[in-house]
Design a binder for these strands. Structure first.
Length: 595
DNA sequence: AGCACCACTTAGGAGGCAAAAT
DNA sequence: ATTTTGCCTCCTAAGTGGTGCT
């Protein structure tokens, strides 16, 4: 089984050396951190340990050592001109930098949008105004970035033309330089970082109709960075970022109740960007296990929740009715809770509590409700589903005397629901229902296949592939429940057409074979045709379903591990390398495990 | 009660690479 | 041998939810 952290024998000394003293003293303080006792070299989950010590706001570490962050290189001028009003202009380097960002995106959908162009111009103008020779560049329509775009294409071509060996060598060299930044030492354990590169400056690409798309995201300097490590740790040297200036860290703190190593403020939304450990670290693993254990606990309380919302809907109090319906939707449709958003600053997306009158419609068919709205990441939720009559009646009532753009549930905010959920179960919040629903769906879907599979598949050729197909269907059902989507590949339609042609050819062949009255050949071919048709249907259904998101974030990995053990499916089929390592805590589960 | 702030999880897309198909 | 496909990793945006302050 893959250990979550494989110490590389070839690892450079730093940052491992300063942690030695804490390793010897097993943490070195009388107050244990969540992982204290892990100095035996075993993983946290191998010591009969669980994740119950994992708490937000709780102590996370005794000692924390790391080397800070890597900064992106400063911009280097290419001196390819901008064409403005049909005249070539060589831009000062700071103006050229921003212009080049646009040139790089010239042919994307973003760059064709008016808001993007407007925001870009506003950001760029601030730089252009700083120079007498560029002050006159004011109108986007007079700007032609073609020469810069061609230059970038040439550069890409050169890079692409490198041989495989050259690419490998370049990558190895990069890895060597970055290795010291790629790991931290937490209470004496070496742990991999998830990210350690400061985000480079660029034009903001929001999702959907984001009002800030195209704005310049500013370059981050050491002064913007807060470093978090233990007091006994050496503060990492501020790297030479190449501008010849002496830089300092913004702040150095020693907060051991948090798990971020570095952070800075993003210039677009003023939000914190953090450096965290990677998904296969002990911290993330414990947090993950705690999440699934909490979701499993909900099984013992779900009946109460359902009883409560049935009663709430019968109440004459509108606030209670609205609470009842929203909890119903969160429970039955696995909707996100939907906090308030500021549409001047963010894309207009909604979740359960922020649904508007316009997002919900009664269908002609009785008790069928049609929901259509943009959710997280501006992904469309479009679902027609049966609801209980009470829900339909109440929704119609909440819509009365309201404009399409009014909130459907004007008395419920996420806090109202979460305050209620806290009374049901410790730590229960709206998002737990998504985890619960996803995992219990996967578990029951896979259980369904257990019986079929054991009878019809065992000992047959191709059993493993067929089994794995069952798994994928179960996974797909969860993804559809959670509305996890992806853009269909641009080649999808063409690929489907090809498959159709293939089937048509086989069908012609079948006719010929039938004429020959070759029975064994006939039945063979029929099977092949059926299989090809099935594959085609599946491919089409999955064209914009994303299986990865539920696998990574919602499905208790123990369900998958147990199922693989029951059916002798190699675990690397559903969990390739990185997932195996992320879920290492789940590998020892017994085959009978039920979520 | 409402809000700002903070910590952390969840999310899809881009791009690179390797396996599969031709 | 070359093209196509599909998978994986990286990137960073976009959510949720808790806390503490006014």
């Amino acid at each position: 089984m893959a250990a979550p952290t494989k110490p590389k024998p070839s690892a450079t000394k730093s940052p491992a050396s300063p942690a030695k003293k804490s390793t010897q003293s097993g943490g070195g303080s009388s107050t244990p951190s969540v992982l204290q006792g892990s100095t035996s070299g075993k993983n946290w989950f191998e010591e009969g340990g669980d994740a119950s010590g994992w708490k937000r706001g709780g102590e996370k570490w005794q000692t924390l050592h790391h080397n800070g962050v890597i900064f992106p290189p400063l911009y280097e001028a290419h001196k390819v001109p901008l064409t403005y009003d049909d005249k070539d202009i060589l831009l000062p380097v700071d103006c050229e930098e921003v212009a080049t960002m646009f040139a790089a995106m010239k042919n994307t959908d973003y760059a064709k949008k008016e808001i993007f162009q407007k925001n870009f111009m506003k950001s760029w103008r601030r730089v252009l105004k700083g120079h007498a020779e560029t002050e006159h560049i004011k109108h986007f329509n007079k700007c032609n970035f073609t020469k810069m775009a061609e230059h970038l294409a040439d550069q890409a071509e050169i890079k692409k033309a490198m041989t495989g060996d050259q690419k490998k060598a370049a990558k190895a060299e990069r890895d060597r330089l970055e290795e010291p930044f790629a790991f931290a030492v937490v209470d004496g354990r070496k742990e991999k970082l998830g990210n350690f590169r400061v985000e480079p400056p660029g034009l903001f690409r929001g999702r959907g109709e984001h009002p800030k798309m195209g704005q310049l995201k500013a370059r981050i300097f050491p002064e913007d960075i807060t470093i978090n490590l233990s007091e006994d740790a050496e503060v990492p040297q501020v790297p030479d970022i190449g501008d010849g200036k002496k830089h300092k860290w913004g702040e150095v703190v020693h907060k051991n109740t948090v798990t971020w190593l570095c952070k800075w403020k993003d210039s677009i939304n003023g939000e914190d960007k953090c450096v965290w450990l990677s998904a296969n670290s002990s911290w993330k693993g414990m947090s993950d296990m705690a999440k699934y254990e909490k979701a499993r606990k909900l099984k013992d309380h779900i009946a109460q929740v359902r009883k409560d919302y049935a009663a709430d809907m019968k109440s004459s109090d509108v606030a209670r009715q609205q609470k009842g319906v929203t909890v119903y939707l969160i429970d039955r449709l696995a909707l996100r809770v939907g906090g308030e958003k500021d549409t001047d600053e963010e894309a207009d997306t909604v979740g359960c509590c922020s649904l508007r009158v316009e997002h919900v419609k009664e269908c002609a068919t009785e008790n069928m409700l049609h929901l259509n709205f943009l959710g997280k990441d501006s992904i469309e939720y479009d679902n027609t589903t049966e609801v209980i009559p009470e829900v339909m009646e109440l929704i119609k009532k909440f819509q009365k005397k309201k404009k399409p753009t009014d909130n459907l549930f004007d008395t419920v905010q996420p806090t109202v629901l979460n305050d209620y959920f806290h009374t049901i179960m410790d730590g229960l919040s709206a998002k737990v229902f998504r985890t619960y629903n996803a995992s219990i769906t996967l578990c029951s879907e896979l259980a369904k296949t257990d019986a079929q599979v054991s009878q019809s598949m065992k000992d047959k050729k191709g059993a493993e592939a067929a089994l794995y197909e069952y798994y994928n269907i179960a996974n797909k059902n969860v993804a559809e429940l959670c509305n996890h989507q992806k853009a269909a590949s641009p080649a999808h339609d063409a690929a489907m057409e090809k498959l159709r042609e293939k089937v048509a050819t086989m069908e012609l062949e079948l006719k010929a074979v039938k004429k020959e009255k070759n029975a064994s050949k006939t039945s063979q071919l029929e099977k092949r045709i059926d299989k090809a048709k099935e594959d085609m249907e599946m491919k089409d259904r999955l064209k914009n379903v994303s299986l990865g998101t539920s696998k990574i974030n919602y499905n208790d990995p123990r369900i998958t591990v147990a199922w693989c053990k029951r059916h002798d499916v190699p675990i690397h089929k559903p969990f390739p390398k990185t997932l195996l390592s992320k879920f290492s805590w789940a590998m020892a589960i017994e085959p009978e495990f039920k979520f």
